[in-house]
């Protein structure tokens, strides 16, 4: 369960705001809920490692919006931590997280997660394809002393 939940929470967090909102609207879901933590904008300190693998260091912060809520009907609790300052994105992500842990998970899987996943793969593939087109092979010219 944790593994699946990590996967969908990550996907929701990385989703472009406009796409998440549009796909959510298409599900037609408007579940009643109460806030456990109303959406709040804050910062997260991002860390790197010296040399890529060494000691951790603080690289700089990133804006993040978080919230937590409980669905009125089934009591399922949803959390969201999403990049940026869009409170309605965080709300949708938390609602989706709560629903995906409830009996209605399958609908949301089909109507929200599957398209978001496909769009993300397509965005990444497109970018990787452009990068691949700039791949070069450098040829070493024969040096005088080697001849």
């Amino acid at each position: 369960m944790t593994k699946e939940r990590q996967t969908w929470m990550g996907l929701l967090a990385r989703a472009p705001e406009d796409r998440l909102k549009a796909l959510w609207a298409e599900t037609g879901m408007t579940p009643a809920f109460s806030w456990l933590r109303a959406p709040e904008v804050g910062g997260v300190m991002l860390r790197g490692r010296t040399g890529g693998t060494g000691a951790a260091f603080n690289l700089g912060e990133m804006t993040v919006t978080r919230c937590a809520l409980r669905l009125t009907d089934c009591g399922s609790v949803g959390h969201a931590y999403v990049q940026g300052r869009d409170k309605s994105k965080a709300e949708i992500a938390a609602l989706a997280d709560a629903i995906l842990q409830s009996a209605n998970a399958a609908v949301l899987q089909d109507k929200l997660l599957t398209p978001l996943q496909a769009e993300e793969v397509s965005r990444r593939t497109s970018r990787a394809g452009k990068a691949a087109a700039t791949k070069v092979d450098f040829f070493t010219l024969v040096r005088g002393e080697d001849a």
Partner: peptide, 9 residues
Amino acid sequence: LPRFGASQP
């Protein structure tokens, strides 16, 4: 901004 925490490296 309130600091929510730190990321993993």
